[in-house]
Nucleic acid binder design. Structure first.
Lengths: 223, 223
DNA sequence: ATGAATTTTGTCCGGACGGTCAGAAGCTCG
DNA sequence: CGAGCTTCTGACCGTCCGGACAAAATTCAT
């Protein structure tokens, strides 16, 4: 319910003028969403301030509020905007492919996501930490069904003897956990390792280890 | 530096009277820290309010501030208090033991931690998300050295042929990621699975999968 | 019991925050 | 060029929050 009202208010900005979106509108909304992502991903909904976002977007607070009337609207806007992009690699996993190449590719993509778009990952964690009140609907419907869909694919691979008998859903959780860890725990990793995943050598070591351990853990031993 | 001043202010509460701690002092500080953990772990430092914590601790705001003069002090107090407990299982991993039983035991302990003390896990994530400004010192010294110590143990196991050749530090990251995932992403897991790790069947499936995949991924194939 | 020390509360302050509003400035298209 | 719409700004408001403070209530040692 809170999700639906959020969507409505989000569209208000777009539907304000009954005509098309202006060039300036498109530009500024983009800049605002980028700035909002940056701030929300660090401080969460409550911790972030509109002033902070406005400054980062290079405009005055009232002007930002001209585009997104409520802080809450801006939050759900950046949240839903990110969700699609974030789930995209999951859909690319093809059923008819070889499990090893498909899963390896998926894991690598998720690791690249963590390296290239860490803020998006952190935004979700902040939301999920709060019990995902703004995503509850999407999680229980869209995410649940997409996970079940892919779990079915994995189950088929298992039935065909191409994969060891592991719980498919928990396997997905393991992949998500190990890959997103490099975005969410960046500060911790940096403290221990001295550098983050943006460093090519670190990224290589991370992906080799993650892919190696996970794949050995689920692939049947070769003859 | 911010860490040192934090420690000082934390001790101020204890050192207020130059004598020992009263019974009431001990009780109330305990209650406050528990309440603070609950609130901080949900909303983070900025998002949490002192009133909220005070109410949850069953006392007035000024009274809470009598024990912890600044919100910030309370935050660092609950943070450092939790850190020791959180890292404890890591130290129990014995070098002279069998890698399989040692690592399996460690992973299981971490999973139990995620099930029994999810708030502690979420508190850290909130801090790390902000770049760990209040933990920077501890992370770069204590955590770094304890990780390197255990990495050396793992390296020895690898040298002895008891473990496959994987990057020890990234292996530790994988263990942390997969286990803490069940605390940090509780809401997501609950949405997909319909229940969380407090459910015995779910916990069993989770630990079987995590332990199974990880151990197969790092143990040499048995003859 | 009583005086000192500790604990608790009501009240208040200054600043920050989300959001409003009226009007100024800029853009667009005839 | 100029009318009408869009975009932007400064000033302002009510509320919430962290924290201060003095005084009241309670505890404790003797």
């Amino acid at each position: 319910m809170s999700y639906e009202t959020a969507i409505e208010s989000q569209d208000l900005a777009r539907a304000r003028g009954s005509k098309k979106r202006t060039r300036i509108q498109a530009e500024n909304e983009e800049r605002i969403l980028d700035a909002a992502l940056e701030v929300f991903s660090r401080y969460g909904l409550r911790g972030a301030t509109v002033d902070q976002i406005a400054e980062k977007a290079g405009m005055s607070k009232p002007n930002l509020l001209y585009y997104f009337r409520r802080k809450h609207d801006l939050y759900t806007a950046v949240l839903t905007r990110t969700l699609d992009m974030w789930l995209a690699p999951f859909g690319e996993m093809a059923e008819d492919g070889d499990p090893e190449t498909e899963l390896t590719g998926y894991i690598r993509q998720k690791l690249e996501q963590s390296r290239d778009f860490p803020q998006e990952s952190r935004l979700f964690i902040g939301e999920v930490l709060l019990g995902a009140p703004h995503l509850d609907g999407v999680l229980k419907t869209d995410l649940k069904s997409i996970v079940e869909e892919k779990a079915e694919v994995i189950r088929r691979w298992i039935r065909d003897g191409k994969l060891l008998d592991v719980d498919p859903v928990h396997l997905v959780f393991m992949i998500w956990a190990t890959t997103q860890h490099y975005a969410d725990f960046d500060a911790q990793i940096r403290s221990v390792l001295g550098r983050g995943v943006e460093d090519p050598a670190t990224f290589r070591a991370a992906s080799d280890t993650v892919i190696g351990v996970l794949m050995r853990g689920i692939l049947p031993v070769r003859s």
